[in-house]
Every structure is written in C-alpha cells, then in structure tokens.
Design a protein around this nucleic acid. Structure first.
Length: 920
RNA sequence: GCCCUGGUGGUGGAACUGGUAGACACGCAGGACUUAAAAUCCUGUGGCCAUUGCGGCCGUGCGGGUUCGAUUCCCGCCCGGGGUACCA
C-alpha cells in the first residue's frame, strides 16, 4: 500500500486544529521564542505559491524550536486595509469589508491546507474595529507627544507646555516645524487657538502642506503606482502635482536612533544598508545668498562648503517658493512654461532621466557672500523641492550634475580643488588641495570644510547643519478603505476625539469615490461629525499604519482594555525571528521600527526594536506562457516553428501548459476566441514561449499552491519550495523537480513498509554504518536549520534515505530519530509515522534528537603521508587538517617524491585525502 | 539615474572561513522487471579530444588584477530582479 497523503494530511490538520497543538502556552516559566511572518494582504487572486515560501521556513523553525522546548509564539493575521479592495468597490459597489472577508476566508482555507503551525486564536485583521481602535489610539499618543532633543526621546506635550509657561520656547530643543520665538509672558497671553497652532508645530503627528499626484478628472489623489507616463492608470487622464494639507508623522525626530539601532540588531546587511541610505544622513552647512534687488535671500544646503569659491550659478527647484517672485518680466513666459512641464513629471522620472538636461534662467542674480560677484539664478528639475532647501549652489567643477548642467548651458566651470581634469569631467573626490579660494587655499578638503563652516558662521550667513534625505512620513490618504483619523476640527484647529469614542468606525457611504468638491470619500457619509457638532477628519490612515505595531497585538490579541497587557509584553518582549520580503526594507520595516521606538519612549513596551533577527525570503516570480498567433490570421504556431513569421504573443494560463507543451483542448475551452483557431504543431505537440514576470492575475501566471497540494500533497509542496534554492534568493516558479521530492516522501514511507504495505520495522540494534549515517544527518540538519539553509537540509535528507535504502535499514533505532528530525519539514507524514511507531502524543511535543560525535568517526586506514614526523590516517585528514601549519611533510608516494626531488616543502595544503598544493 | 541584490552543466541548485567545481534533484540516454503501460530498480550524463585502460585540455556572465591556488577577494563592464516615499 502506498502512502495516502490526501486522507493523512486532512487527518492531521484536523488533529492539530482540534487539539490546539500550536497555541502558545500561558505558562510563562518556559523560555519564549517569538517567530513572526509578514502578514499578507488578502488579494482577490488568492494565495499564490510565493506566499508560503517564507511561511514554510518560519513553520520549520517553529516546529524545531517547539521540539527544543521553547514556548513558541507563531501567529498569523491579515493586513486587510488596502487599495485593491477599494478599487474593486469603486467598480462594483460591493463594500470592501465584504470582499475582504471573502478573500480572507479563501486565504485561510489555502493556508490550512499547507499544514502551518499558526496559533489562530491570536489572529489579527487590521481592518477590524477591535484592532484599529488601537491603531487610532497610537495616533493619539503621537498627536499628544513632542520630541525633546535634550532627553533624546518623545515626551507628552504636558512637559513642553510647562516649559513654555516658565521660559517660553527660546531654549527648547525640539524636533519641530519652524516656529517664531516667544516668551513665557507671550505664551500666557496667547489665545487657546494661537496656542494650538503653535503646538501643532511640535506634535509628532502634525498637519502640513505636501505634494501629491492629483488627477483633476478623477477628483482624487493617486499613488505613484496608479500613474503611468503622467496619466492615470484608470481612465488615462492627466495627473498633476499639487500641494495639499496632509497629516505627517515626524519620523525625522528618530533619524539618528533609527541609524544607531541598526548596529544592535541581527538583520541582513543589505537591508541595514538600504535603511542607512534611505535616512541619508549628511553633514554640511546652510549658506544664505542675498538676492540682488530683493529683500529675500536664497538658502542652500551643501555638503561641500569648501567649494564655495567654485560657485558659478544657483539652481532652484522649479517648485521653489521664490521662483515666481524673482523671475524677471522678460523671462516670465519661458520660466512658467518650464515649471508647468516639470510639475507634471514625477520625482522618479526627474531623477531617472539624467540624460535630458533642462532648465531656465530666471533673470535674477544673487551676490556671492565672499567675492561679492553677481551669480545668476537658474531653475532646473534635477533639483528636488523635497530635499534640503530645494535650492543648490552649483559648483560645476566638483559636482557631476552641476557639471553636466553647466556644459549644456555654457556656464563657467571653476576649479577650486586640485587633482582633476575639468576639461573632461567634474572632480568630485574629497581629496586634494584647495586653489583659487582665498582663505582656503592650500588646505585639504576635510580641513577646508571645517574652515569654511567656521567662516560662514562667523559671517552669520549660515551654519553647520546635519541634513537627512529622509522626509517626514505623510500619514493621510484620500481613501475610504483605511483607518479613520480620530480628529475633529474646531475652527480649522484639529483636536482629538475623546478616548472613549474609539474605535471611530468607518461610516457607510453611497460611493467609494471622492465628493464632487474633491473631498475624500468619508466626507460623503451622513453626519460625518463629532457628537459636539464639529467636522471629522475625512482622510484615512495609510496602509502601513496597521502593520507598524501588529507584532505587539499578537502578544495579547483579544485585550479590550489595552493594546496588550504589561505582563504579556514583558514576557514576549519582541520578535526573535522575523521573516518577510526585502521589498519592505524602506517602508514597513522602517515605520515599524519608528513606532516601536516611540512606544518605548512612552514606557509602554520593554524593547525599542521590533525584531532581533530578520530573514528576507526571495520573491517567487511567475513564468508566463505565450502562444504565438500569426499576425492577421487565427492561426497559432508552435514556438520552434516561428522562424521569421510575424506573430503576436498571447498569454496562456500557465496551468494549461506542462513542460512547455500546451493542452490545446483545455485552452480552447478556456478562451472562446481560440476555440476555432488552427494550431501548427511540431512533433505532434504545441510548444509555448515563456518569460519571467511578477506573478499577477492579469498575466495568467499565478500558480496557486492548491493544485500542487492536490496532486502531490502538502508535505511535498513544503519540501519542494524549500528545495527550490536558498530562501533569500528570488526565483521563477517551476515544478520541474517536484517529482524528486514526491519520490522522496514515498521512499521514507518505504523505510517502514514493504511493497505490500506491511510494517517492516526492525527492532534489532543498528550497525556502526547505520548510526554514522543517522548522526551525520542529525548534525547537518541541526547546523543547517540554525543557519536557515533549508534547501541543503532537503538534500541531506535525500542522501540519508538513499543510504538507508541501500543498506536495507529498517531499524527503529535509526528511523525513529530520522522521523523526528524530518518532522518540521514534512509534518503530516511524520505525525503518521510517529503514531505507527506506537506513540500517542503529537510528534511536535517530542524532543528534537541530538547527534553524538562518537558515531561520526569512520573506520580508519593508513594513508601514505607523514606530517610533522607522524604518519596520518585518512580518517585524521577527514577530521580536518586543512590549512594547519605543517613543518615537515614526507609524502610517501613515488610521484610526489619525484616532484620534490628530495627538497622539503615550505607549505603543504591538504584537503581530505589529497595534497592540493605544495610550495617548495 | 540612485540604493540593494543576483549571474555556476540542458534545468533548479551544492561548494559554510581562498583549497578536489558541479553534491542532491530534475531532465535525457541505455538497461532490468512487465504481454504492455505506470511504478520501481540499476548504469551513464559539464564541454572538447582520447576512448585499448591510464588519460589530456577547457570550464563558475565579460575584461583585468591580487594569490602557490579565485565560483569565493579587488577594479572596470554587460545582463536579470527588488526598492525609489499614496502597491502591499
């Protein structure tokens, strides 16, 4: 009898659910281990084979850690607010909550079939009012806090107000928006309204004007993703950049601590590097350049104040507030035309396109603060409004972009740092002596930077500054399907709702679109007002709000009084192992660290980092299949017969293609317009072309795990996904090798059963060779799980089973431990075998076996080499004499003796069983 | 553009710290069992040459470098993937 995976997998999945086998224990005396997966957005296409990749890995570790005696917390939930559900709602009128619920149910069904060890009692959904109540509550804490640079943490606003009352704001060191100075007297005399306006400059959640993609025809704000080539993806209408009042979070306050914290966590170096670059700390100086014929000055930020004598022009971002003011009458028309074009280009376009150099002269001049010369002011879209001051002092000699701009517009290029050849390219290295720079002449770059800043500060035209590339996080979305922001407006002043009004639930609306006047969808709701009659905020929170603290909620998912009880927080602390995609490096993974530090500052949680260790799983891509249609005919030609014919590639559902061969009848049934088509075959088959693309519904390349589970079983899917390659690497999905894993499962079964299905478990003692095979396998598996190398684990298991099969070993003392170490990988099979071996309890409660070095030693034999005067055996070489320092080596082999001609080698490099290299 | 990352047989990949490149698996070829097929098992399988055995040369995207020795370290390219601030 063969292994019946279908009924067996269903049986054990039911057992685990009924017995709540994987619920984290209430007992807090055991050591804890918290393993977290990035929860999925429940999309309409259902779970695809890429989702389980990380979940299988975390599941293996979960089961392994449980067997090692840890109290493991391994929860799952859904990031269930998001754009796709809303767009579906716009098209169909279906409430997003309904679609979301349906999608979640489908996800849950699919997840269950893989046999995951999630503790479903702790499930969270970000769109559940019982959950987003606390997301809103955290927003309130942000609104009520300011960042005190003296204590270097966030504090309640009360401490700030008390400083204002005693001393005004002159000596307050806060991370805040620009605020005028006031005394304690002035503060006390301000009206309540004035006080609130000032406090808004200090709050960690504040209102400000920011740039958005605005589509006038749709009357809505669009994500960059929804904009293609300056047009809306939906409808193809023009999109412009527009300023809008938005909530922002003062993440900048945490820039330094977000950098510092990276040194204390075991995260992949590339992720840390991306976060460091994203935060982009740079030291430099601000410098004010006085405008000619205007009262204002242009302030720039530069990391190279040393090159101040190399300034030959200024460049402002087209959006810079001074542009319209300083532009001279004769330049007005061209400048404004340029601004219009630049406004329609996204930041990404502007940065990506460095080949097209564009800009305009404004007609205005500034005065160089050291030379007194007139410097022309230009605008150019390579300068971004969002970074620094939105203006740069252009030093074409020593900055690549300035150089290209100067060459293009024939502006002077001055040399102030020696060492380069400015006729060829800019010299931007921070090395060399200063020239043509008055008081800086002769100094090395780093000394010149210091000297320049000192002089700038002395002249009071600027100061040494630290600038971050990181921008404050915009927190408003003009959408329906998100958390409502718990704020009401009194005379335009934002005020929090009372805590007992939470959760502020999403209202019913007649359509999920903006109002006629362009307000967000929530403004459509009847009586979108507070109890005391004030307008409520109509924007909602961004997708990342709910995911920025969910790891805390799992610790105490059902608590109605707090986001999690102190006791639970203190026990579970933070995540020990977090597994998810690297695509979240500068989004979710930065925001969650920010919120964690904030809650830590308020003394609400015990750790200021969310995860000790992070592993990134690679993205599984889809392989799209194409049938090639001859242009102008209803004729399809097999891939290798295309030759020079003009064809159009048509996406074919990948589920109807096997190993490149298309199932013609199935395709005809699937696509009505292909039912009557003619197919030109090769060798009696129709071969498809293929291409690697992101898995997506529209490309018909989504592969659901369901089909694999149906055909081969969950254990095979689990092991095959691990076998596919290293966890961190992205790879296109293919099922070419799945037979090997499927075969492996059957071979394990046959260690217990003969061909007729009878048990053949041998109770006699194992031989040395059998024990060696077992223990070397345990050793390798333990080491490989510990370094998250699951693909090599699978190979190790295959080698082990091959060896045992060859030795015809069916001994309990060997196959029982083997089942234990295999259990995290193929849990259904192993539960069954475990029970066949006579155990009543689930295998997940059994201890993970340890290996014994003594069994690893091979039987020894003489090997013809003597090292340091001692004859060594092959066994000793096997145990690793690699790279040991060897004084003398006598190689007892004629060939080597001949090579050495009696000389003593200086260095001998040995790999097991063989001399690799001799240095004479 | 910028930041991060990957490139090894026909295919997925292994080689963990600079030391036998290609483990393991798929596929393919041949064979055993079978009336036949499926399943299972055995043998071979990087390329070229030699195949009467020993063997010989080339080979980890491309071009250089360091080293006794490089898939691994350094420099310069080419190509693929991810991110780029309202996708999640």
């Amino acid at each position: 009898m063969e292994y019946e995976f279908r009924e067996n997998e269903a049986k054990w999945q039911k057992y685990w659910a009924d017995h709540k086998t994987f619920a984290a224990a209430k007992d807090k005396t055991k050591p804890k281990y918290y393993i977290l997966d990035m929860f999925p957005y429940p999309s309409g296409a259902g779970l695809h084979v890429g989702h389980p990749l990380g979940y299988i890995a975390s599941d293996i570790v979960t089961r392994y850690k449980r067997m090692q005696g840890f109290n493991v917390l391994h929860p799952m939930g859904y990031d269930s607010f998001g754009l796709p559900a809303e767009q579906y709602a716009i098209q169909t009128g279906q409430h997003p909550a309904i679609t979301t619920e349906q999608n979640i149910n489908r996800y849950r069904e699919q997840l269950d079939k893989v046999g995951f060890s999630f503790d479903w009692d702790r499930e969270v959904r970000t769109s559940d009012p019982a959950y987003y109540k606390w997301t809103q509550w955290i927003f309130m804490q942000l609104f009520n806090s300011w960042y005190n640079k003296d204590t270097d943490k966030a504090e309640n606003l009360a401490s700030l107000i008390s400083i204002f009352e005693q001393n005004g704001n002159a000596n307050v060191k806060a991370v805040c928006s620009e605020t005028e100075q006031f005394s304690s007297e002035e503060w006390k005399n301000y009206s309540e309204e004035q006080k609130q306006i000032i406090l808004l400059n200090y709050r960690l959640a504040y209102l400000s004007d920011t740039m958005v993609n605005w589509c006038p025809q749709l009357g809505t704000v669009l994500a960059n993703e929804e904009v293609k080539d300056g047009l809306s993806e939906r409808g193809g209408y023009p999109v412009i950049r527009k300023e809008m009042k938005q909530w922002s979070l003062r993440i900048i306050a945490y820039a330094d601590r977000l950098l510092e914290g990276l040194d204390r966590i075991d995260w992949p170096e590339p992720i840390k590097e991306m976060q460091r670059n994203w935060i982009g700390k740079s030291e430099g100086s601000t410098i004010r350049f006085q405008l000619k014929d205007h009262a204002e000055a242009i302030e720039v930020f530069t990391t190279r104040p040393d090159t101040i004598y190399g300034v030959s022009y200024m460049t402002l971002a087209p959006e810079h507030e001074l542009v319209k003011k300083i532009c001279t009458a004769d330049r007005k028309a061209t400048v404004e035309a340029y601004i219009d074009i630049a406004a329609n280009r996204s930041e990404r376009d502007r940065m990506a396109d460095v080949k097209t150099i564009s800009g305009e002269f404004t007609g205005a001049y500034v005065v160089h603060p050291f030379t007194g010369k007139d410097i022309p002011v230009w605008i150019g879209d390579y300068v971004l409004a969002g970074y620094g001051t939105g203006a740069v002092m252009a030093v074409p000699g020593h900055d690549t972009r300035d150089y290209a701009f100067a060459k293009h517009f024939d502006l002077p290029i001055l040399e102030v740092v020696s060492g380069g050849d400015l006729s060829v390219e800019a010299y931007d290295a921070k090395q060399g002596a200063m020239v043509n720079s008055d008081f800086l002449n002769g100094l090395e770059v780093y000394d010149a930077i210091k000297a320049a800043i000192a002089k700038i500060e002395e002249k009071e035209i600027g100061k040494g500054t630290i600038q971050y590339r990181l921008r404050d996080a915009i927190f408003s979305r003009q959408r329906y399907w998100g958390e409502p922001i718990p704020v009401k407006f009194k005379n335009g002043i934002p005020e929090l709702l009372a805590e007992d009004k939470l959760p502020l639930k999403l209202p019913e609306v007649d359509a999920y679109l903006p109002t006629e006047s362009g307000e967000p969808p929530l403004a459509r709701a009847k009586n979108w007002m507070s109890d005391d009659g004030f307008a409520l905020e109509a924007s909602t929170m961004p997708g990342w709000a709910g995911s920025s603290w969910y790891f805390l909620r799992y610790m105490d998912a059902k608590n109605e009084h707090e986001f999690a009880a102190k006791e639970e927080l203190n026990y579970w602390q933070n995540v020990d192992l977090y597994i998810g995609g690297a695509e979240h490096a500068t989004g979710h993974l930065l925001y969650v660290r920010f919120w964690t530090k904030f809650l830590f500052d308020l003394g609400m949680i015990p750790k200021d980092e969310m995860a000790k260790k992070l592993i990134n799983q690679g993205m599984i891509q889809g392989v799209s299949c194409f049938a090639h249609r001859i242009q102008g005919e209803n004729k399809y030609v097999s891939f290798n017969l295309i030759k020079d014919q003009k064809t159009t590639a048509i996406h074919i559902d990948v589920n109807l293609v096997e190993n490149g061969v298309m199932d013609i009848e199935a395709v005809k049934a699937w696509k009505p317009d292909m039912a009557n088509a003619e197919f030109i075959l090769e060798d009696g088959k129709f071969i498809c072309g293929h291409e690697v693309e992101k898995m997506s519904k529209s490309k018909y390349n989504v592969v659901s795990p369901d089909v694999i589970i149906e055909q081969h079983g969950a254990d095979t899917l689990r092991m095959y996904e691990m076998f596919l390659g290293p966890l961190e690497l992205g790879k296109p999905w293919n099922t070419n090798g799945i037979e090997g894993v499927s075969k492996f499962i059957r071979r394990v079964w046959r260690l217990f059963h003969d061909a007729t299905g009878n048990l053949i478990i041998d109770e006699s003692d194992a031989t040395k060779d059998e024990l060696r095979t077992l223990h070397k396998t345990i050793k390798k598996i333990t080491e490989d799980i510990d370094r998250f190398s699951f693909n090599t684990c699978i190979s190790t298991f295959m080698i082990c089973v091959n060896e045992l099969t060859e030795m015809k070993c069916h001994k309990r003392s060997v196959i029982e431990p083997l089942v234990l170490i295999l259990a995290p990988f193929a849990p259904h099979l192993c539960e069954e075998l475990w029970s066949i071996l006579g155990h009543k309890e689930s295998i997940s409660a059994a201890p993970f076996p340890k290996y014994n070095e003594a069994y690893l030693v091979q039987s020894s034999f003489e090997y013809p080499i003597s090292i340091n005067g001692k004859t060594r055996t092959k066994m000793e070489l096997d145990l690793g004499l690699n790279n040991q320092q060897i004084e003398t080596a006598v190689l007892e082999s004629d060939e080597v003796q001949k090579f050495l001609e009696g000389k003593q080698p200086k260095k001998v490099i040995i790999v097991p069983g063989r001399i690799v290299n001799l240095v004479i």
